[in-house]
Design a protein around this nucleic acid. Structure first.
Lengths: 371, 371
DNA sequence: CGCCGTCGTGAAAGCGCTTGCGGTCGAACT
DNA sequence: AGTTCGACCGCAAGCGCTTTCACGACGGCG
């Protein structure tokens, strides 16, 4: 340890916590040997008792447990692990962003999925957070593999790993689960982006729109096949609408990007009557841009997004909802299965559904804004 | 390890990675002894070389490093730690929510603060994530202290710890930094909520409002003195406006809460002409409620929030911006100082500033919406 | 009443690494 | 040329646990 224990605030005032044992106020630094001594047993027995080995007599176990409690003892995960026992499992959570609602929400779900049904009150699994947002961070993560040798499993959240990254990941030597992203090549839980996209665009088509724009995003780190864009294209093709490349603009993620993109679309000789945005955050920017241009949503232009972001309701945004929290929960469950040594669970695709709100209407419609 | 290594996808295809050493395709499970053998030195020298001890000859170091690289070796953090060395430091990140923009954004900052200026390419610090959102989780965290013995420092993000929680935290025996929350009792980085509140409310007062409502939040887990509410009260007192308890409503955090609260305010015999919301998310809901009621913002009612949420611009929301990302960065820096054994750095209070947008205007104003 | 299977417990051998304490050897001294 | 002194390196002792393996003490059996 390079850490100076004295760096903490003055003389610790924890004398009133416990002081059964010899050491006054067990300071958490008591060793297993202290416990054993206090309980009047050997190191081995103490260890066995604490690990619920069946071979120790109930009475002895009690004594050890009491001693441990008295000394305020906690096993050293490092030593425990070194000596072969699994201690509490550790999982790497690899996530590109955290300020976007989707990721944060998914992680909240992941946490409950990982902890779920742990009866002994102990938090089930330690989560090591790896933020790989920018290209540099991402490269560093896959190159240096900082999770190496320190996790028993990993979950990759919301982004696609390419061939070589995948190979690097396998070097971790642990099970990997993917959540909220493409469903290759690990056990994963996602939604069907293709279908979600179709739900959005088909909705516009059903309303009668034919000239439909798309606001796609171009995050340098979030590459991979953009299924939502593909859905857009096939939906239009299926509807017999000719392809018009001008109608697809690629913008940075977020409201600003959405506004910018919508600006571009509005600047076209023949602007679209409806727009499908990559996500609600983008859609929100788009709506705003429409309004700034003196037009109305949905009267002049319909906008549909994806996610059902908490603020989507406020913006009265029609969107395709996806179960974000649940994706996390399910992923957490998968990780637990894998940690328990189970077979890789089958990937799951969770359903999405269209949420009708006030940002879409038939082309040229009027007076439907308040519906 | 209870983890079955075979649980991973079939026969790993990593044979093409490296295979300098004796072991074909170093599988990351090579030990320091392997490295030493390959480099033709003793265990101790190998260790020293890898740890950049000055006492090893440059040539030897090179040889060891090469061997390590060849074998694709990584030290076992557990063993390393056990043996006394700090290995990579670990810090607990304790955070109540993750789906709220503020927290996610702050954590992004924290990550860069923790990693900052680490020239050797290694990710500076391991972050252990602890989500303590609900009361149960919070209780569990402080009671079981799952971070015990596994972190070298902790940062508490965005919430206040009470007396007994603080005492529990000290049991961790490590330095603690608080970020984005109340500034007691640890080294902390925050904004002055009192001042931020004043900026918001004073703004309304300066515009000429006298009947000003407040949308406070009541998260069961986020207790502690609500400085923003206090700021509201003193601002009004200073302005000579009599106290009217009806004008303060306490609602759950979020847009829904904001809408609900605004509904209550609008239902008053004499509704306010302006409202100060605890945060932008709440303010957004409030704005929406106003519009749903057939009134206009800011013409009929002004609304001001706090945060400068990314979507605030879209909603044209006047707000008091706070440097969220930066709070994280600074906190990360503090942690690093503490980890390095430095003295507890002084707490920092970062500045906030009013961002004027279209959701506020003098009472009874009209036609300023587009300004 | 002595033999053997169980149950409960200890002693001791590590897990993979770091490090204090010498030892070796060539270079700089006298 | 005989020493002295660094610079480098190896030996071995742990770090705090888990876990074989072996051992004493039972009780039930023949």
């Amino acid at each position: 340890m390079m850490i100076d224990p004295e760096a903490l605030a003055g003389p610790s005032r924890l004398s009133d916590v416990v002081h059964h044992g010899g050491r006054a106020g067990g300071d958490g630094r008591a060793g297993l040997d202290d416990v054993a001594r206090l309980a009047g047993v050997s190191l081995s027995t103490a260890s066995r008792a604490l690990n619920n080995h069946p071979q120790v007599a109930a009475a002895t176990r009690e004594r050890v447990l009491a001693a441990a409690a008295g000394l305020d003892y906690v096993v050293s995960p490092d030593a425990s692990r070194l000596a072969g026992r699994s201690s509490r499992a550790r999982v790497a959570v690899v996530v590109p962003h955290l300020s976007r609602w989707f990721f944060g929400r998914l992680l909240e779900g992941l946490e409950v999925g990982l902890r779920d049904g742990d009866p002994d009150g102990g938090a089930g699994v330690d989560q090591l957070l790896f933020l790989v947002g920018d290209v540099a961070g991402r490269r560093a993560f896959f190159e240096d593999l900082p999770a190496r040798r320190r996790v028993d499993a990993a979950v990759v959240v919301g982004f696609e790993v390419d061939e070589v990254e995948q190979r690097r990941l396998e070097l971790l030597g642990v099970s990997i689960v993917s959540a909220g992203g493409p469903r290759e090549p690990f056990p994963s839980v996602t939604v069907d982006d293709l279908r979600a996209g179709r739900q959005a665009v088909d909705h516009l088509v059903h309303l009668g729109h034919r000239r439909i724009g798309m606001l796609a995003t171009a995050d340098p780190a979030d590459r991979g096949p953009d299924l939502r864009s593909r859905a857009y294209r096939t939906a239009l093709t299926d509807a017999g609408v000719p392809d018009d490349p001008d109608l697809v603009v690629r913008v940075p993620f977020g409201p600003a990007g959405g506004a910018e993109g919508m600006g571009r679309l509005l600047g076209l000789r023949r602007p679209p009557t409806a727009v499908f945005a990559y996500s609600d955050e983008v859609a929100a920017g788009a709506v705003r841009a429409v309004q700034r241009a003196g037009l109305r949503v949905p009267d002049d232009i319909s906008v549909v997004g994806i996610d059902d972001h908490p603020l989507a309701g406020l913006l009265d945004l029609t969107t395709v909802a996806q179960p974000v929290h649940e994706q996390g929960v399910v992923a957490g469950g998968m990780v637990r299965v894998l940690l328990a040594g189970g077979d890789p669970p089958p990937s799951q695709v969770l359903p999405t559904h269209l949420v009708l709100r006030g940002s879409t209407a038939p082309p040229g419609a009027a007076g439907r804004a308040e519906t």
